[in-house]
C-alpha cells in the first residue's frame, strides 16, 4: 500500500476511535457534572472518580435483553438506530486537524476527504441524521414515539435554516467552502492587535445563532422536546431497549461532538492556536493539531452539559417561534452584514 492509502486509513481509524469513546466519556462527564451543579456526588464508586461506571454501563447495554415489540414495523425499526450514528461518523471526513505534513517524502493533508465542497458536504451529511428520529418514531407503533418524531422533524428542519445561514456567514470572509482554508484564514494576523484572528470575534452574533441552533439540532436541553420525558415517556426511542437504545444515545453525543467540531473549526480557529509551533516531525505536528482541536471540542461539550443542567425546557410553540421569528431573520441580517463588511474590506 502507498503512504497516502495508509495515511487515509490511519486518519479514519483515529476519528473512529475518538468518536466511539465520546459517548461513554460524555455520559460520565454529564452525570458527574450534573451532580456537581446540583450539589450531589454522582457515580463515584466504580474505578477512580467513578470513571469505569460507563464501562459497566456499556457491558450492561450489551447483555440486556433486546426486546422487539410485536407490532413494530421491523425493517424500519432496525434501520433507525443504525442511522443514528452513521451521519455523525461520516461528517468527520471533511474536518481538518492539522496542516499539511511531510511523511516519507510525500505530502499528506491532515483531513480524510480533501474535497472542494467540504463545509457543504458536512452540512449535507449532518442533515441526514433526522431520518433516524423520524423512522424510530414511525416504526415503533407508539403514539408517544410518533409525537416525538413529528416534533423532531419540525424542530430540526426549522433550526437547520438558521444553522446553515450562520455557517455560510462564517465561510464568507475566507471566501471558500474548504474548511482547511477557513482555518488558514483564521491564522492571518490578529483582531485589534491582541485577539486571535478567529471568526468568533467579528461574528459573535453569528456564533450565538450557530450555538443556539446546534442545541436544537442535537435535541439537547433546553430544546430536547422530541424526548421530553415529562410529556412523551422517552419520545422517539420509547420502544427501544438494550444496545439499540444505546445507539441513539451514542448518536446524540456524537452529533454533539460533530457540531462542536464544526463550531470550533469555523469560529475558533480549528486545530490552530496562536503561539504553538506547527513545524517539525509529522507525528508531533499531527498530535499537536489534534489535541488543540479536541480541547476546543471538549470546551463546547462542557458548555452543552452546563446548559443542560441550568435551563428549563422550552414549550414547543416557543421553540418554533424562536427559530422562525427570531433566529432566522437574525441569521439573514447577519449574513448580509458579514457579506457587506467583507466586500468593504473590514473582515
Amino acid at each position: 500500500m502507498s503512504i497516502a492509502a495508509i495515511a487515509t486509513l490511519a486518519k479514519i481509524g483515529l476519528w473512529f476511535a475518538v468518536l466511539m469513546n465520546v459517548a461513554p466519556i460524555m455520559v460520565w462527564v454529564e452525570r458527574r457534572g450534573s451532580a456537581m451543579i446540583q450539589d450531589r456526588l454522582g457515580p463515584n464508586r466504580v474505578g477512580p472518580f467513578g470513571l469505569f461506571q460507563s464501562l459497566a454501563d456499556a457491558v450492561k447495554f450489551l447483555f440486556k435483553e433486546d426486546l422487539t415489540p410485536s407490532e413494530v414495523d421491523k425493517p424500519l425499526y432496525y434501520l433507525a438506530p443504525a442511522l443514528a450514528i452513521v451521519p455523525a461518523l461520516t461528517t468527520y471526513a471533511v474536518l481538518p486537524f492539522g496542516p499539511e505534513v511531510q511523511v516519507g517524502g510525500e505530502t499528506v493533508k491532515l483531513l480524510v476527504a480533501d474535497v472542494d465542497t467540504g463545509a457543504l458536504l458536512f452540512l449535507a451529511l449532518a442533515s441526514l441524521g433526522v431520518y433516524s428520529l423520524v423512522l424510530a418514531g414511525y416504526s415503533s407503533n407508539n403514539k408517544y414515539s410518533l409525537l416525538g418524531s413529528v416534533r423532531a422533524t419540525a424542530q430540526m428542519i426549522s433550526y437547520e435554516l438558521a444553522l446553515t445561514l450562520s455557517v455560510v456567514a462564517a465561510l464568507i470572509p475566507a471566501g471558500t467552502l474548504r474548511l482547511d482554508d477557513v482555518v488558514a484564514y483564521q491564522q492571518q494576523g490578529t483582531w485589534l492587535g491582541f485577539l486571535p484572528h478567529w471568526n468568533v470575534f467579528p461574528q459573535c452574533i453569528g456564533f450565538l445563532i450557530f450555538l443556539i441552533a446546534s442545541f436544537a439540532e442535537t435535541n439537547r436541553l433546553p430544546f430536547d422536546l422530541p424526548e421530553a420525558e415529562s410529556e412523551l415517556v422517552a419520545g422517539y426511542h420509547t420502544e427501544y431497549s438494550s444496545m439499540k437504545f444505546a445507539l441513539f444515545f451514542m448518536g446524540e453525543y456524537m452529533s454533539m461532538a460533530t457540531l462542536s467540531a464544526l463550531g470550533a473549526t469555523l469560529f475558533f480557529g480549528g486545530w490552530h492556536f496562536p503561539g504553538i509551533d506547527y513545524t517539525g516531525h509529522w507525528a508531533i505536528v499531527a498530535a499537536k493539531g489534534f489535541t488543540v482541536l479536541l480541547a476546543k471540542i471538549t470546551a463546547f461539550m462542557l458548555l452543552f452539559v452546563w446548559v443542560r443542567w441550568t435551563f428549563p425546557r422550552f414549550r414547543f410553540d416557543q421553540l418554533l417561534k424562536l427559530g422562525w421569528k427570531v433566529l432566522l431573520p437574525l441569521a439573514i441580517a447577519n449574513l448580509i452584514a458579514v457579506a457587506a463588511l467583507t466586500i468593504g474590506g473590514v473582515l
Binding site: D116, L121, L123, A124, S127, L128, S149, T153
Partner: peptide, 27 residues
C-alpha cells in the same frame, strides 16, 4: 461533486424529510 452535495443537502436533507413529516402528520 457540487451538484451531488446540493442534491443531498436539498432533496434528501430537507424535502424528503418534509415528505415524511406530512405522511406522519396525516398518519
Amino acid at each position: 461533486p457540487l451538484l451531488a452535495v446540493l442534491q443531498v443537502l436539498v432533496y434528501t436533507g430537507a424535502i424528503l424529510v418534509l415528505f415524511l413529516f406530512v405522511i406522519m402528520l396525516l398518519n
